[in-house]
Design a protein around this nucleic acid. Structure first.
Lengths: 269, 269
DNA sequence: CGACTAGTTGAGGCCAGTCAATGTTGGTGG
DNA sequence: CCACCAACATTGACTGGCCTCAACTAGTCG
C-alpha cells in the first residue's frame, strides 16, 4: 500500500492538540477550551525553535505580551504581499509558507519555504516595505510580532536581542547556501540537497527525517531551485528508479540518504 | 618594502596609524598629523553609509570607542576564513572585498562584492563561526567591530540597534535579488544586472555611475553570477559590439544604461 | 627574456529548457 | 456512487544556451 503517510507527531509537550486538522477556524461552539491556553509562547510546541528560545519564564511572558495577533491562513492565502508596508515579523506556529520574490518585470521566484518556528518578513526591515510575498502552502497559523516592539523589548532582554540576530544571520547563511546551489550545482545535485535539507528541518522538529510530505508543487520546487517543473519531475522519477527515494505524489521516502548526500557533493573540486 | 601584510594595529583608540598610503609617503617622521585624526567615525567619509549613520556626535563617539582595530589588507589577503571563530563584524573603510562560500566538497562561489561603508561577516553570527571567507580585491582597510560590544551598545543606542537591523535586512534582500538572478535569468540578463548594480553602488558613494573599474577577474564575476569565465568574456564582447558598453580590460563604461536595463527585464512575465 | 596570469575567441557537446501528449488525483455536484 | 473537471504530474522528442576544451594574445613580473 501507499501509506508513505503523513507525519502526525507533536513536538515538545504534547498537550492536547485539538483540531490540528485543516478544517477551518474552530467551527461552531466557540468554547474557550484548552486550545486558547495553548496560544502562548510558554505552551507553544515551537518555543524552543522560535524567537523566545532560551528565555526564562518572565522574559517569555514579555514576548508573549508583545504579540500582536495570531492569524490563521487558509491554503493559498497571502500573509503579506511585496510592497505592503512592513510592520511586523511573523512567527509560524503551525503549517507552512512559501515566500516569493518578484522582479520588476513580473518574474517570480520562490525564495524560501518556512515551517513552524521559522520567522518570516526579515527582508522588510530595510525598506519598511515587504520585499517579497508570503503565501500559505496549507492551513497555517502565525503570530504577528510588531517589529518596533521587538526592538524595544530587545533592548531590555539581551537573550531576545541575540535570538533576533541569530535568526537574521541564519537567514543570510541559508540564502548563501541557496546561492551556492543555484550557481554551481547541477539539477540533480540541487534537488538532492533540497530533499536532504527538508529532511533535516523535519528532524529538528521531531518528525521523521526520512519520510515526509512535500507541501509544494513540482513547479514551486522548480522555482526555488531554478529548474522547470518537468526537470523536477524527471529527476524524481530517476531518483526513484535508482533506488534513492520512493515518491508517490508528494509523499517522499528517502531510501538512501547517504547516496543522496554523495550525489550532492559528487563533483567536489 | 613596507609590507602592510599582517594586521599590526593596536586596539581601542587609534594612536599612530602610519602609512595610510601605499606610497611610502608616511616614511620618516612619524608625525601625529591630520591623518590620524581622520581615522574616526566622525571624520570617516563613509560615516553616512556605515553603521553609525544618523547617530549624533556622542553616539558616534561611542561606536568609535568600540572599534577593535583597524586593519589593512593587501590585495589577496583574507580578512577571515570559513570556519574561523566569529568575533566581530567588519566595516570597510577603503578598498573592496569579495566574500566566498564554500561547499563541503570544496566548491567555492563568490557570494558578494563589498565596498566602503559595507559591513561583512553578518553570516557568522548564527554559528559563532564565519560561514564564508572574505578576501581583499585590492588594498583595503576595515574597522573591526566586536560583535558582543555592538550588541551591548545597541541596547543603549536605539539608532545603532536599528542600523544593525537595517544592514542585516539589506543583506537578506540583496541575497534574494541574487537568488532571483541565478534562478531565473539568462546569462546576459545577469551580467547586465550586475553592471547596473555596481553602477548604482558607485553612484551612492559619489563616484561615476557610468564609468568604473571592475575589481575582480572574469572568473570571479562568473562565479558570482553562476557562469563560466568564457561566458562572461563573450558577453562583454557582445555588449560592446552592440554598443551597450565599452570595455577595456577591467575598465567599463556604460554607454546605454537604459538599454541594459531593458535587457534585464526583457522577458517579463 | 621566459614564465605566468588574465582575457579572448572558436568548435562541438551536453544538460536542462521547450513544446506537446497523456496520465493521475482530488474535489464537486448530480 | 459515478461523472466530470481542473490542477497537478509524467514522459517523450527536440532545441538551444551555456559549458568544455583548446588555441591564441596581451600584459606583468622576476
Amino acid at each position: 500500500m501507499p501509506s508513505i503517510a503523513k507525519p502526525k507527531q507533536e513536538v515538545g509537550l504534547p498537550v492536547h492538540v485539538v483540531a490540528e486538522r485543516p478544517t477551518g477556524a474552530g467551527g461552531h461552539a466557540p468554547v474557550i477550551s484548552i486550545r486558547d491556553l495553548k496560544i502562548h509562547c510558554a505552551t507553544c510546541s515551537m518555543r524552543e525553535l522560535c524567537l523566545p528560545s532560551g528565555l526564562n519564564a518572565a522574559e517569555m511572558g514579555q514576548v508573549d505580551a508583545m504579540i500582536g495577533k495570531r492569524t490563521k491562513l487558509k491554503k493559498g492565502d497571502a500573509l503579506y504581499r511585496a510592497g505592503e508596508p512592513f510592520a511586523a515579523l511573523f512567527a509560524i506556529r503551525l503549517g507552512s509558507l512559501k515566500t516569493t520574490v518578484l522582479a520588476e518585470d513580473g518574474r517570480e521566484q520562490v525564495s524560501g519555504y518556512h515551517m513552524p518556528g521559522d520567522l518570516v518578513g526579515l527582508d522588510g526591515i530595510s525598506t519598511d516595505r515587504h520585499g517579497c510575498q508570503a503565501v500559505a502552502l496549507e492551513d497555517t497559523e502565525v503570530c504577528a510580532l510588531p517589529f518596533s516592539r521587538i526592538e524595544e523589548l530587545a533592548r531590555d532582554v539581551p537573550g531576545l536581542q541575540h535570538n533576533l540576530h541569530l535568526f537574521m544571520s541564519r537567514e543570510i547563511s541559508r540564502d548563501h547556501g541557496v546561492m551556492l546551489s543555484l550557481g554551481s550545482m547541477r539539477a540533480e545535485e540541487r534537488l538532492a540537497l533540497f530533499l536532504l535539507n527538508l529532511a533535516e528541518r523535519y528532524r529538528r522538529r521531531g518528525y521523521s527525517s526520512t519520510e515526509y510530505v512535500l507541501r509544494m508543487t513540482r513547479e514551486e520546487i522548480g522555482s526555488y531551485l531554478g529548474l522547470k517543473l518537468e526537470t523536477v519531475s524527471r529527476l524524481f522519477s530517476r531518483f526513484q528508479g535508482e533506488g534513492l527515494i520512493q515518491i508517490q505524489g508528494r509523499a517522499v521516502k528517502l531510501l538512501d540518504p547517504i547516496a543522496l548526500k554523495q550525489l550532492v557533493s559528487q563533483r567536489g573540486q
